[in-house]
Design a protein around this nucleic acid. Structure first.
Lengths: 132, 132
DNA sequence: AAGTGAATGTAATAACATCACCCATCAAAA
DNA sequence: TTTTGATGGGTGATGTTATTACATTCACTT
């Protein structure tokens, strides 16, 4: 398991920035927030994000081209992960559902599809935004 | 229900091109293939795609920035749709699973999340590519 | 000291998507 | 009939997201 202490400088900067942001952020948003820290090139951020995703500390939200910190970084045994993304406030909530996972793995088995990963993202309005 | 006959010229061109392609294609791939037909600007393709998606004739694959024709264009009652995308050959297979849909709607209910749409894309290697 | 692999710095470019503006058509309202 | 509004289209410019290519630096090993 990769510990936070093992992160390189750029990886730490990006991870801390994303954590502080508290919501999904694009690579360029992160870059803007890290100019003071010395980062100036998108590649620096993308490279750090690639590693953070690889380490399971960060997830990529495919449907909004953004990244978010993992809700359960210590639990390295979680399977397929889903996200509920609020189109009003931009927040994303991570969750998982064993039944959904079982069904998707089942479909894969049935169709001889060798599953490598799943993107499950539901879009809509979160509780807070619906009430308001 | 929007019929194919109702499509405008650009919409028809894009739809026919995508159908002929027989696999997911990016907007720029489509544009390249439609230069002879007179299209020269990405906007022309994106506008057509927006309408085709709205009409349910085409789906957007969020995780690969591509578009694919709907497998069941006449069945306008299908709920959440999933795709199995082969990372080797680029093909995508559309499917749906009532149980997955029920679970995602259930999560939404439980969390007062007003679901507007779902992105379900599994990535891996299809049967044909695994055998080879 | 020299070699190695990972990380970094940087410019350039590719790939994906939208905006802004103007024009044409057509049908409904005035 | 004129006006208005909705829809579609053509086009250049721009915005946004992501990668490539190559040089350099750093930590560690031999």
């Amino acid at each position: 398991m990769t510990q936070l202490q093992d992160l390189t400088r750029n990886q730490s900067l990006v991870f801390e920035r994303l954590t502080a942001h508290g919501a999904p952020a694009s690579a360029y948003d992160l870059l803007d927030g890290l100019r003071d820290a010395g980062l100036r090139n998108p590649n620096q951020v993308y490279r750090a994000l690639d590693k953070l995703v690889e380490y399971g500390l960060v997830h990529r939200l495919e449907s909004i081209n953004a990244f978010v910190t993992c809700a359960h970084p210590h639990d390295h045994k979680h399977g397929l992960i889903a996200f509920a993304i609020c189109e009003t406030c931009g927040q994303a909530e991570e969750f998982s559902d064993d039944f959904v996972e079982e069904r998707l793995r089942g479909w894969s088995m049935d169709h001889a599809f060798r599953l490598s990963r799943a993107i499950i993202e539901i879009r809509g309005a979160c509780k807070a935004c619906t009430v308001a």
